[in-house]
Write a protein that binds this DNA or RNA. Sequence first.
DNA 1: AATGAATGAGATTTCATTCAT
DNA 2: GATGAATGAAATCTCATTCAT
Lengths: 183, 183, 183, 183
Amino acid sequence: MSGSSRGPNDPGRRDRIIEAALDVIAEHGVRGATQRRIADAAGVPLGSVTYHFEGGQELLVEAFTRLAETVSARYREPLEAAETVEEARAAVVEIICGGSVWGSPRELVLSYELYAFASRNPALLDVIRAWMAASRASLSRHFDARTARALDALVEGLSIHNSMDAEPMSRQDVAAVVRAVSS
Amino acid sequence: MSGSSRGPNDPGRRDRIIEAALDVIAEHGVRGATQRRIADAAGVPLGSVTYHFEGGQELLVEAFTRLAETVSARYREPLEAAETVEEARAAVVEIICGGSVWGSPRELVLSYELYAFASRNPALLDVIRAWMAASRASLSRHFDARTARALDALVEGLSIHNSMDAEPMSRQDVAAVVRAVSS
Amino acid sequence: MSGSSRGPNDPGRRDRIIEAALDVIAEHGVRGATQRRIADAAGVPLGSVTYHFEGGQELLVEAFTRLAETVSARYREPLEAAETVEEARAAVVEIICGGSVWGSPRELVLSYELYAFASRNPALLDVIRAWMAASRASLSRHFDARTARALDALVEGLSIHNSMDAEPMSRQDVAAVVRAVSS
Amino acid sequence: MSGSSRGPNDPGRRDRIIEAALDVIAEHGVRGATQRRIADAAGVPLGSVTYHFEGGQELLVEAFTRLAETVSARYREPLEAAETVEEARAAVVEIICGGSVWGSPRELVLSYELYAFASRNPALLDVIRAWMAASRASLSRHFDARTARALDALVEGLSIHNSMDAEPMSRQDVAAVVRAVSS
DNA sequence: AATGAATGAGATTTCATTCAT
DNA sequence: GATGAATGAAATCTCATTCAT
């Protein structure tokens, strides 16, 4: 009975492949995210990728879905913790300036890849819409619908520009803009 | 004798290939932008692509550079035409809601691909920075630096979200947000 | 059920490709030794060549290494069989004139290709040096070091010239020269 | 009348291409001797190579023919200058050990390429035979036919081995072998 | 005569997928 | 269930040659 052949010997493997896929996409882009590279990054044999995922498309969809969920969760937390409008504004500033949501350039780069990829993939477009809806729902606990939407867009735009600018906008200026939009 | 479009004399060919590359990227993504597809889209033989461009990377860089210049120009025009702050605000609203800058989903999709691609290509990062600087310069004719930056980010964020939302933010609401940020 | 030569189980395939490579080099030169031709000669699909060898360079190096080992072994045998100096001289003459070492023009032609190729490949230069050292070691069982070296060079030079001359040097004359060098 | 279009503007160009071809073969092998590389090495446009030579084969044949003539001439001179047998022996030793004939590894490497290439090119085989005949004729002024042939082979073999050995045979030893063969 | 542009053929390489075990 | 071997398709790249000027 030693070494049973029933059941997965490595239950976390599927997850590891998904995480590795995101790493590879961040480093090489969707274009360079070949199954072999993903397998290497995950430390599993190539056949394992084909075994766990029916084609490369499926793996990409799952990876991006996970990305959206992860980032979305990190977005929601500080907003749900806020109890006053003032705290909510501070949370928005933190999301834009702090490293808590877009922890590293990694997530932001991945989001560009996601947007590009989702343009041709309806399933992922739905994932993005759900993500956006969740973000706005969190904001709506503190702001009216239109302001929530505007703040959400502001987070998006400032995050992108800050990541590309030589010097990002100061936290103080971000706070001023957030206040202007939300009052 | 009337200018055949083939043979040794086709001075616009290089340009046509670049335009075709953008079309193919918009339709199939950077991942699907193979040289053969680009050649077919441009109506030139495959060898012509490798003749005019030293490898696929160079072609992508040139194509994205052209994209940035084109979109940047379309962004600048309405702002430079504006003569009062009020007109400038209207121009910003038009850029976000109208079809003049992001004429079609095409340009927006291409910009996602560009952001993703530029993350791994310093030369293109510089192109993007120049684009952003030009946009802000146009805005700075009417607004102070911080506001210019904020509006630029707002354009980015709202454009993206509007393109993905089932129903985009109304022009009226956009105008309200623009006014809030710029006063 | 009788061992099909295809499918996932063909352990000799790597070897067959190497042999085929030597055949193709002999017939078409290193210049004409394309992977497709080698694959055809080995009776395997093209993909199989790239699967077993990391690039064409590796295949060439392995093929030439095998050539050196094969020819070297054939060189050594008659010399190790010899028990007297007289028999050793006869063995040298046999190596030069008989078909035992340079069985066919094939091996000699291959050795030109090897020398040319090794000029730009340190690993193969080492293989050749080992080959030469082995040859001299065999000769040194019967002759002093300097004579061994001279005889080895003589074998080389006469083999080459005989293969290109319209009429090779007679066995009798070869024997005389060998005697002159080794006394 | 300035810049007449009649007649070749650059009469030495054909020669320069041939020399460049030998340089490229020495550096990259016949396999790497592409017309583009040769054109670059000669400092002429690519079209010029096709213009002066009907196909790459012709260029290679001419280049190797020139090589044979050049090396052959350098071989002949010291032997024709010799007036006694003793001087002739010294000349042979000089050919093997000195840098006068195989001035650099370049010529020797080129000769491997030539031998390999000539195996599949009858015209070049004739060039090699003529070269060998000329060498022997020079030697025959001082030695009998059989000895001439043996010395010629010895030159070949020792040159090759010396070029590959970590340490070449000493001039003194070479002289002893030459004497042994030629007495 | 001479050449740069152009192109088709083909060589190399990469890749997703299949399959036997 | 899991995987290494294997392969065909296709993408990239190289090259000799052709052609209009």
